[in-house]
């Protein structure tokens, strides 16, 4: 079974040379730590920066340079700043190649819910609805089950949707899955996790064809 860093490490393998990537808050932010050094990638943050670098050294924080998680950041050579409308032109116009975000629920048809639990928790969608409606490649990073042990990979989302039929790939603490026409296609198992365990933790239709390899985390 993977921890959050393990999930981020596996997702980092999906980041290709020359990609512009938008990382959501939470596990997705960790992906930046595991991208190979020998490829060129630029991270976009929707509040208006492309070419995001690591956190600043202590004492060098600048209140005017933050990411969408409101964390102080630095920029790398080649970076740029822009306004919010331009930022979402990059996103809706499909200039950003890959979006990695978290989710509360994903359905077997690719629907995603991640912004609201009616009557209980309302954080808002932020940029998530724009991102999922437009991105060509969307990877969801999340735990396979919620805190009470219920599956987050469902036949149908129970929470208000963020986007419809948009998720392509999911990386959880148990598995790598792809959305196919008939449901979740199991591609890889996390180290030490059996197909049976993944089946038991997946409420939606799980398609298992042939031998399912274990993830290679390098």
């Amino acid at each position: 079974m993977l921890d959050k860093n393990g999930i981020a490490k596996r997702i980092a393998q999906e980041v290709k040379d020359g990609y512009y990537v938008n990382l959501g808050i939470g596990i997705p932010t960790l992906v930046a730590n595991f991208v190979r050094d020998d490829i060129s990638v630029e991270f976009q943050s929707e509040n208006g920066v492309l070419g995001m670098g690591p956190f600043p050294f202590e004492g060098e924080e600048d209140a005017d340079v933050i990411n969408a998680g409101k964390q102080t950041i630095t920029t790398l050579p080649g970076a740029s700043f822009f306004d919010s409308a331009t930022s979402f032109s990059m996103i809706r116009g499909q200039h950003v190649d890959l979006t990695i975000l978290g989710a509360m629920e994903v359905a077997e048809n690719g629907d995603i819910a991640n912004w609201k639990i009616p009557g209980k928790m309302v954080k808002g969608m932020g940029g998530a609805m724009d991102l999922v409606a437009s991105a060509e490649h969307i990877i969801v990073a999340m735990m396979h089950t919620n805190r009470s042990g219920q599956s987050k990979l469902l036949k149908k989302c129970s929470l208000p949707l963020t986007g419809v039929q948009c998720v392509k790939k999911i990386v959880t603490n148990l598995a790598v899955l792809e959305i196919g026409p008939k449901g979740f296609i199991l591609l890889e198992r996390a180290p030490g996790v059996s197909v049976e365990e993944i089946k038991a933790a997946t409420e939606g239709n799980l398609i298992v064809e042939g031998e399912i390899p274990e993830m290679k985390l390098g």
Partner: peptide
């Protein structure tokens, strides 16, 4: 949605009464 919020401002600034977006469909 954040991009819609930005664009609703830009539309007001630019003289567009409305626009189509995929966000939130």
């Amino acid at each position: 949605p954040q991009g819609t919020l930005a664009e609703k401002c830009r539309a007001a600034q630019s003289g567009f009464p409305a626009f189509y977006t995929p966000a939130g469909y």
